[in-house]
Write a protein that binds this DNA or RNA. Structure first.
Lengths: 131, 131
DNA sequence: GTAATCCTTGACGCCGACGTCAAGGCAAGG
DNA sequence: CCTTGCCTTGACGTCGGCGTCAAGGATTAC
């Protein structure tokens, strides 16, 4: 199949495919007229890449998976290098989530304090206002 | 004080201060020779900006806080517009953290499945191996 | 023959918050 | 006078993953 069909079947753009090729990730054969040609295996590679991209993996991080599939393994994550990437990514995600949770807490505290200050200003010294 | 001193006291760079000025966020007075001049109030504005930046706020999101301080309020978050930014940011953070947690789970599942598959291949059909 | 729809390469644009270099001005100390 | 160390503006570079033209060739449909 040609680049347009592959792009459509993978839910992406031809520009993306040419970009992947320029990065050496998804090279293409060529027909006599210079058109790129792909087969079903390429579609599998591409789907593997897209799945990881959707997870937020960088392109370079998808390379071990692609290499693994190209080496004939049944799945992109059947190789130790791919598992290593999974593990690094998990650690990275945990770190990031933790950081964001910290920031979230700090922002929440700032908001609460600012709202309190506003309430104070609106009705100051509410204590000792009873009979 | 001049730009170098302000940058140092706020723990940032002169390039950053010129950038903020170009964005209209932190304009500077000038001395006769064209040098930028800042005072303690500018330092307060700058510290407000840097704090929010450290939280991951975009520059534009810090503008309401700066305007609030410049309007004479005691704190950058003493104004409704600032509180609105806080709230938007909280929602944004919650969404982002949720997304990342989802991805983390999916990656963890992929990893577990791949590890299982590797174990299967190493010692297939472990069931029914007893006496 | 010609219009429509593919395809090709090349190259600039984008986004955010600056880093970094270039060329030159101003002030102070020795 | 000369060096040192501030300061000025201007402009290009960074990072990732593409989007979006531009100019032209190939194939198919009518």
């Amino acid at each position: 199949m040609r680049i347009g069909e592959l792009a459509e079947r993978a839910g992406t753009s031809t520009r993306t495919l040419r970009y992947y090729e320029s990065r050496g990730l998804l090279p293409a054969r060529r027909t006599g007229n210079g058109y790129r040609t792909y087969d079903e295996d390429d579609l599998r590679l591409l789907r593997q890449i897209r799945m990881l991209q959707d997870f937020g993996f960088e392109l370079e991080e998808t390379r071990p998976f692609v290499d693994c599939l190209r080496a004939g393994h049944p799945a992109g994550d059947s190789c130790p290098a791919s598992l290593a990437v999974y593990r690094r990514k998990l650690a990275e995600l945990d770190g990031l989530i933790g950081q964001l949770a910290d920031v979230r807490e700090q922002v929440a505290r700032q908001l609460a304090a600012a709202e309190d200050a506003a309430g104070e200003a609106a009705s100051p010294r509410c204590e000792m206002t009873g009979p």
